[in-house]
Amino acid sequence: MTTKKHRVLPGFGLSLGYSLVYLSLLVLIPLGGLIARSAQMSLAEFWAIATAERALAAYRVTFGCALLAAIVNAFFGLLVAWVLVRYDFWGKRFVDAFVDLPFALPTAVAGITLTTLYAANGWIGQYVEGVLGYKVAFAPPGIVVALIFIGIPFVVRTVQPVIEDIEPEVEEAAASLGATRAQTFVKVLLPTLFPALLTGFALSFSRAVGEYGSVIFIAGNMPMVSEITPLLIISKLEQYDVAGATVLAVVMLVISFVLLLGINLLQWWAANRHSGRHVDAGVQA
């Protein structure tokens, strides 16, 4: 005799079906179309466009800058989240609200503002360029600056709740066992934060890879030097080279997917390694 298995939450079939349809409509079908469109050309043609010198340079700029920005964000985002959770200071609520601004601000506004600031005659640019002799706006460093700006809330908002979860007692315990502040951070806090930090890093990175609006204002958009792949796609489209644009899109898609999959696996590994979820947890004595 079989008994029907009851779940606490009903409607598994319905909700899964709905999710799949929704995902298909919004994500899978457009992406499928993209691949179908690029599949119309021969492999040699595809390869030629995908590995054109200008395209390769654009990938380098796009992924390199995004990676750099995500690394910087992982570091400073962690710092900002830490300060927001652990210290009380005047205006903390405002700072907390400021963190979300890059989410809301139109990216073009961000791009124009940053360009104005970092241009050779801008508030910051005149010192960086004039005194240090380092060109930011209209050069790759400008792209990184813009990507840092739009990416930082992702790190702060993913790490913040995890820091809130860490009991101060854990740090006190480490101190009473003779650990220095640095040892406590490296051996106790960082491992606990690592999965969340990785998530924040991945979000910030993927946001940066796809960013267009703010970058085109500050980048200078010189082919081979500071031209990002999204811009290259747009310019191909403007020349009615739809096939070429699709090829670049597919390449970006594949690279992004592989990188994100890698990060996700790493994350899954980091989260599972210590929770012991993979072993039977029913040990009670």
Binding site: E167, E169, V170, E172, A173, A174, V188, P191, T192, R273, H274, S275
Partner: peptide, 10 residues
């Protein structure tokens, strides 16, 4: 500590 404060990743 009352709530143990063990290092959960170790």
């Amino acid at each position: 500590f009352q709530h143990y404060a063990l290092f959960r990743h170790m």
